[in-house]
Design a protein around this nucleic acid. Structure first.
Lengths: 110, 110
DNA sequence: GCGTTAATTAACATTTGCGTTAATAAAAGA
DNA sequence: TCTTTTATTAACGCAAATGTTAATTAACGC
């Protein structure tokens, strides 16, 4: 498991992706607040947070009995770097698709 | 499982990520060529390719007994879209990090 | 038609992932 | 100090993922 595959694995679960989106929107939240909005049990959330932490996707800040979680910006940046590393591969098709949608409803393929 | 989590799940396995990288580099390859460079068995590779296909990460083109695989550019574009959707979150830190590395070896934190 | 080649599917064993409830740990507050 | 609050870890069950070898499917070439 590389760093990148671990990051992808961390985000491959709907519950965890949802936690990440919530944390991106809120900035920093204690485990309890994250568990409160979830449909599964607090221990389950706690373990999902552990997976995210071990993958380097979130960070934990301890204050008293509270554990505040936040998304590590670097994790998203790493994913972005990977896609950008291959931009010459997918970027062309994307630009072409954009062009087709915007300028040529009939398409331009042979 | 959303489309995005399925894409992340497809790329969360080192073997599958490696297949994708190979296909990005080579463009299009038959299953046999992909199996040949792998350390695991051909049936195992065949199933990994199926996972990638069902997640929309690769496409299959049939020609005789050969199945040619290639990466679907849209899959990488979707991941890139997700990171870009949250760029205001991680972009700032990244820019700041870039700035620190380029301009201020001592850092600028208190 | 028949054997060969390319690839997948079947059957099986093992491991990993994810959920639950119960138990534990540690800080706060009366 | 004793109880409450916050959060995690333990123990357990079950479903899904991943690997292997054997069997199957389909096209080629003689």
């Amino acid at each position: 498991m590389t760093q990148l595959t671990r990051t992808f694995a961390a985000l491959s679960d709907p519950t965890r992706l949802s936690l990440v989106e919530t944390l991106i929107a809120s900035g920093e939240l204690p485990a309890g607040a994250l568990a409160a909005q979830a449909t599964i049990s607090a221990p389950a959330i706690s373990r999902h947070l552990k997976v995210l932490r071990e993958a380097g996707v979130v960070r934990q800040r301890i204050e008293g009995t509270h554990r505040f979680y936040s998304v590590d910006a670097g994790a998203l940046a790493r994913i972005n770097s990977w896609t950008m590393d291959h931009r010459s591969f997918w970027g062309k098709s994307l630009d072409r698709l954009d062009g087709m949608l915007a300028l040529d409803p009939e398409g331009e393929d042979q």
